[in-house]
Design a protein around this nucleic acid. Structure first.
Lengths: 234, 234
DNA sequence: CTTGACACCGCACAAATGTTCGTGTACAAT
DNA sequence: ATTGTACACGAACATTTGTGCGGTGTCAAG
């Protein structure tokens, strides 16, 4: 039997969801993600998948489903649904732990007299969960790779990756990616509404040496808010 | 802080449950298994564990919890809570990858005419696996929270988190955290050995406006190399 | 034309499940 | 004696969430 696009989509979503959160999605989450309006249709398709033994389902248990990686691999679906993670998942089978935290060993600053010991991970007073802390609400996240030096004024360098959460509205001072009608460009700037004229917005670079830009509000559409900047140095 | 028997018990149960079923237990299941009559007591203890960052919990989500294996391992709890699975995970720990990818919807730069659509995740031409790409060799990673503006010259701002890999040696040009004997401080700078005198090192800020510092090599101990800079904006 | 499988939709229901709140006990500190 | 803190209990509550059922549209076989 051959799977419908929708079913492959469901598999893909489940895979990604479990990867990211360590627990399976509900049928409603699946439905929303795969543009299925009715929960019964999700159930219907899950049953299909279960018959194919591509997933395992526990009846009447919330989130009671899991992927059958072996079967997925056997049918060659792994690449299709797994995206970049597929191969590693394959290697690790079902024992994949998707959790990743790093000990914060201290603060660093000029004049700081604390000598940190990178070896002593146990004494860390704080841990950063890179997945959880930095990237909540992942459905709405996306990334942009910064090109050129146009954003150095905000300490965002060429090659950096900015993580954004999709949203139309922005609060004053937030760094957003905005599309500017007329200029025909997407840019990264701090967002301010005009205090007096509500239909005017200001896009302000972080560095005062650069000049602020002002636009009619209807010319600026906010695509998302920057929630994180990531720079790779190796 | 020290955990109660009950809390260790809970951890053990969760570990076993997830291992067997691929999805986490409910608080009632935990309660039953650990002889806790009240759901609120389970919640109470889960909160404790969450404060210790031994588990991660998603509020108001059924079965929305997962174990923090890294922290469990660091605190030596792994052997205690895990049966056969723990050893496997332990063994695998250097290969365990946590998969978390974000669609790269395009590049962003001044003058870039591409209008990205954050909604359309499916069309992403590229995905960034944040964990895999950014953080290999996790055992040696640690983080420092940057305090003050002493590193703005390298586009590292107050509040940023720098991820470092512990190592004593550094190559020319790499950004390192170094402890400077005499100055008694840990600082973030680009590292250069003197071309002529091998026992002399230069610590150079990224911004040429700041002056370079020179030290005898034995006065500078490299603690680690910066592999990533992360900035949270929300 | 009728029939039946297939895929889908919407809705309502009941069970599962996390949260809140008032209460109680033990113990150490004041 | 009093206060405060840590831990525990149970009941009530509000969502969350899986299931069931009637109905719709398509399409090919009879």
């Amino acid at each position: 039997m051959t799977l419908s696009d929708r079913q492959v989509n469901i598999l893909r979503y489940i895979a990604r969801f479990v990867d990211e959160r360590n627990y399976p999605p509900t049928i409603r989450q699946i439905g929303t993600a795969c543009s299925i309006s009715s929960t019964s249709v999700v159930k219907y398709n899950l049953s299909k998948l279960e018959n194919e033994e591509l997933i395992v389902r526990e009846a009447e248990v919330s989130r009671g489903l899991s992927l059958n990686w072996d079967k997925l691999e056997a049918t060659g679906l792994l690449d299709e649904i797994g995206g970049p993670a597929s191969r590693a998942i394959n290697n690790l089978s079902d024992r994949v732990v998707s959790f990743f935290s790093v000990p914060v060993l201290g603060n660093i600053a000029a004049g700081e007299p604390i000598r940190v010991d990178p070896t002593d991970r146990a004494s860390a007073d704080e841990w950063i969960d890179l997945n959880e802390a930095l990237f909540r609400d992942r459905e709405k996240l996306f990334a942009l790779r910064v090109q050129g030096d146009s954003m150095v004024d905000a300490s965002v360098l060429d090659g950096d990756i900015v993580i954004l959460r999709q949203q139309e509205r922005a609060e004053n001072g937030e760094m957003v990616a905005a599309w500017i009608e007329g200029l025909e460009e997407t840019t990264l700037k701090h967002f301010y509404r005009d205090e007096k004229k509500s239909q005017v917005v200001h896009l302000r670079p972080a560095n005062p040496a650069y000049s602020e830009m002002t636009f009619p509000a209807n010319q600026v559409s906010v695509m998302g808010k920057v929630v994180s900047v990531i720079r790779q140095l190796e």
